[in-house]
C-alpha cells in the first residue's frame, strides 16, 4: 500500500486570480512583504500496489490523464509506503 500526496498548481505563466485576491488581503492586513501568492490543490491517493516503481508510474499517468490539466497546471507528488 502506498499513499501519494499530489500537489497541483497553476503554471507560473498562468495568472492566478485567487492568489492575487489573497495577496491583496494579506497586504491590507499589514503583510506588506508578501510578493506573490499562488493557490493550488493537494490530493491524497491511496493505492493497493506492492511496488514503489509501479505506484509512481500509475500516479504519474493519473495526473496526466485526469488530475491535472496540462494546458494550465503542473503537478508533483511524493509517495509514502504503508501510510
Amino acid at each position: 500500500m502506498y499513499k501519494a500526496t499530489i500537489t497541483i498548481r497553476l503554471k507560473t505563466s498562468v495568472l492566478d486570480p485567487q492568489g492575487n485576491a489573497v495577496k491583496g488581503s494579506l497586504h491590507s492586513l499589514g503583510y506588506g512583504e508578501v510578493r506573490d501568492v499562488r493557490i493550488g490543490k493537494t490530493m491524497e491517493v491511496w493505492l493497493d500496489t506492492p511496488d514503489a516503481g509501479e505506484a509512481e508510474g500509475r500516479v504519474e499517468a493519473m495526473c496526466r490523464e485526469l488530475l491535472a490539466n496540462p494546458v494550465i497546471e503542473e503537478y508533483e507528488f511524493r509517495l509514502e509506503k504503508g501510510a
Binding site: L10, V14, L15, P17, Q18, A21, N69, V71, I72
Partner: peptide, 9 residues
Amino acid sequence: GAMRVNDHL
C-alpha cells in the same frame, strides 16, 4: 486551451 476562474472571482 483551458478555462480558468473569472479574473474578478
